[in-house]
Amino acid sequence: MRADIHPEYNEVLFHDTNADVYFLTRSTIKTKHTREYEGKEYPYVALDVSSASHPFYTGEQRKAQNEGRVATFNKRFGAFASRGKK
């Protein structure tokens, strides 16, 4: 391998602001912000969405799918059907 071509691989603190969860993992990301976590200082990155708050991982997405196709159709086009009846 050639020397001096690889980025630095350090521990970084990621913070999911929606779920207020912290993840300590290794990354090559560079940031100017730092935070203290468990007694040590780490580079800090704030996230809007992670696996702790994303609907796919939390299971919230299933609630909308349980409604069914007929209910979804009636919700979208129910107003048109009620206008035709007099």
Rank of each mutant, 00 (worst) to 15 (best):
G39I: 11
I29L: 15
D4Y: 12
L13T: 02
L47S: 05
V70A: 05
K30I: 14
R35A: 07
E38G: 14
A64G: 08
E38I: 14
S51Q: 08
Y44S: 05
Y57T: 15
N10F: 15
D20E: 08
V49W: 03
K40G: 14
A19L: 00
E8F: 11
S27P: 10
M1W: 09
T34S: 12
H6A: 05
K30S: 13
K86M: 04
E8C: 12
G59F: 07
P43Q: 06
D20I: 04
E8S: 10
G84P: 13
A79Q: 00
E67Y: 05
A3E: 05
H6S: 03
K85L: 07
K40P: 10
E41W: 01
E60D: 00
F77S: 07
V49L: 00
V70N: 00
G39A: 06
Y22Q: 11
R83Q: 13
V21H: 06
M1T: 05
K32F: 09
N18E: 11
V49C: 01
H6K: 10
R62H: 07
H54C: 08
E67Q: 06
I5R: 14
T31Y: 02
D4W: 13
T28G: 11
T17I: 04
T58N: 03
F77K: 05
H54P: 08
A52E: 07
P7E: 00
N66F: 13
G68M: 00
K75F: 03
N18R: 12
H33F: 10
D16C: 07
A3M: 04
Y42V: 05
Y9I: 02
R26M: 09
L47E: 01
